[in-house]
Design a protein around this nucleic acid. Structure first.
Lengths: 192, 192
DNA sequence: ATAATCTTTCAGTATCTACTGAAAGGACAG
DNA sequence: CTGTCCTTTCAGTAGATACTGAAAGATTAT
């Protein structure tokens, strides 16, 4: 509230500067969100809650990001469903507030887990199904030996191996969310 | 070409079965592609080239996936630009053929590298810029100590640490594409 | 040169996704 | 119960993205 009167080094006031910085972050985070299964607006809302590090209500969000009430409501709910922000009731306040999880690693881990479930798991399942449909007992011995079948089976096998291994990495990461990223990385960096 | 005449175990013929299996894989891979910065059609084309493991020409792609010439042409070019499929000239053939990279780990590594470049790098840069705009020399000592500023600076710092570390992991993975995933994973699995 | 074969481009269109604003739905206060 | 304050829902619309098909551009054969 109190403007810093004697401060020759800057021309813009600190309040304004803080807002500018936050907006910078918000915009970038929103862009990034788009490619993470979270759309721009959801990304921006999350960024706003994260970067301010203070509970905000629906109107705060609407004002800051210039979005409609409906959009704010739906996006906030979606973020709650993801689990990367939380509802918060303030004593004596009628309206609801929202805050972001503070632990970045936890946030990332939640998103990673969801993406694994929605994207990788179905592919792995499909690959297994495909392999069954191409084995000898399904096709017959002679047919199973034809070149096109063999080639496809090989490709399926390589892909399965890759996915299985990637899945394990994900699980390790997700499972170790609490211990932070540092440990994982130390191990990795030492190994190479 | 030669149908397997005496094969009591299956009712559908092997050719048909192979196609069905491939289509299953193609559809799933296409869906997954959407969330990887590659749209459904591009994903499907890549899946088709990968799973058949044989060079295919533009008309093959159009026919198999029921898409227009224009779409096929543009998507194939985009996949070439990504570097996950390659053009291939056949002796005495006028038209061009395409084939997928065969090494899954290499494919993944190319995509990961591109995503890091397009998504993570800009965010890291923005964070650094934000931090500069909030340090004492920009805001003045008194202003820099205000609570909202402190909170934002903390959040920026946590995020930077996280991103820096994630970046390193990516680089390790990308840099070790040739050696395969297995090595990375063995290290990880042992560590926990 | 002309024709034949294949590829690329792009304006127009279809399809999908995100957003708005107004109306309906709680929840609490008096 | 009635009014106030806040949230949610959703039909309609705006905006973004993907796709088509036809025309123009290349390349090789004759």
């Amino acid at each position: 509230m109190i403007a810093n009167a004697i401060e020759p080094k800057t021309t813009t006031n600190p309040q304004q500067q803080l807002k500018t910085v936050q907006d910078l972050f918000i915009r970038r985070w929103g862009e990034m969100g788009q490619t993470w299964g979270i759309n721009r607006t959801m990304g921006e809302i999350h960024a706003f809650l994260y970067i301010t590090a203070q509970p905000q209500c629906t109107d705060d969000v609407m004002e800051r990001l210039n979005i409609s009430r409906g959009n704010a409501s739906m996006s906030l709910r979606a973020l709650c469903d993801w689990g990367i922000i939380r509802r918060l009731h303030k004593r004596g306040e009628r309206r609801e507030f929202f805050e972001s999880l503070s632990d970045v690693w936890e946030i990332f881990s939640i998103i990673a887990a969801e993406r694994k479930r929605r994207e990788m798991d179905p592919v792995l399942e499909t690959i297994k199904q495909c392999q069954k449909m191409l084995d000898e007992s399904s096709l017959g011995k002679a047919a199973a030996k034809q070149e096109p079948v063999q080639l496809t089976r090989q490709r399926l096998a390589s892909m399965e191996e890759f996915m299985a291994v990637t899945n394990k990495i994900f699980q390790q990461f997700i499972g170790n969310a609490r211990s932070g990223l540092t440990r994982v990385v130390k191990v990795l960096l030492k190994a190479f």
